[in-house]
Amino acid sequence: MNKNKDRYLSIILISPSILAVLIFVYGFIGWSIRVSLSDWKGLNPNYTWAGSKNYLALFSDPRFHVDIRNTLIFTGVFVIGSIVLGFILAVMLDQGLKGEGIFRSIFLFPMAISYIVTGVVWRWLMNPAEGSRMSGLNLLFDSLNLDFLVNRWHTTPIWGMAAIAIAAIWQMSGYTMALYLAGLRAIPHELREAARIDGASEFQIYRRIILPLLTPISLSALIILGHMSLKVFDLIIAIAGKQLPLDVPAIYMWQTTFDGLFYSRGAAIGILLLISVAVLIIPYIRYTLKAED
């Protein structure tokens, strides 16, 4: 009797949340899909059926090709950079040095700040001007006699996206550091001691014992950073504005929808983004939930 009451109560209590998520996530996704299959261009909604026209147009759209290339470059540099740097920082901090807390705070603090704020500063730091107008990091490198480091940052043809990724690494590597640090702390000390007694070098210990134990963490980091990089938007806007060489799908979507009033094309880009995130996330969610049971 009592049990039944509680069961109903629990369903009643959770249903507002479920309803909200159903409408605001899945309902809206469905709505977007419908728009992406329509002919809506201009101010007034137009749900005339257009089939896959918008998607096909995107596949042959040179701008969308640039977007895909940029996203791949950004994702590669950002994910690998954040994971490697985060891991190295975590290993260094794991040695039990004095002042660990201060360093940890310094590495983490960029995460607390909004992309809009940090983007403004990075825009200055990565100024690619040459000669007498040199400024930002280039000026710093130049005056430290590190000339070989001077480069054109985000205005480098094709690879400019990698420079944006550096700013993103700056902001997010503290996060991977924190993930790895938590992971390292969870590894029992005896394991390393035992390996040491067996005559393994420090490098071997990390290579053979610690890294494999950290695999779940690396996987988490990969997924979290990977899905973030597909959505990157405000950071690029704040550093470089809306410019084609640094275009990504999220910016194309915003511009074509709200500047160009190509609503159906914008919706199609949104849905393609969603599909790429889903390809990454759904297996991961399944894997994690299975691992729990």
Binding site: K41, G42, P62, R63, V66, P157, Q243, L244, P245, D247, Q255, T256, D259, G260, L261, F262
Partner: peptide
């Protein structure tokens, strides 16, 4: 109009690159 302008802007971006 906005749509036309945004298409020209995209074409310009591709040209500059």
């Amino acid at each position: 109009n906005d749509s036309w302008k945004s298409e020209i802007d995209t074409a310009l971006g591709l040209f500059v690159a």
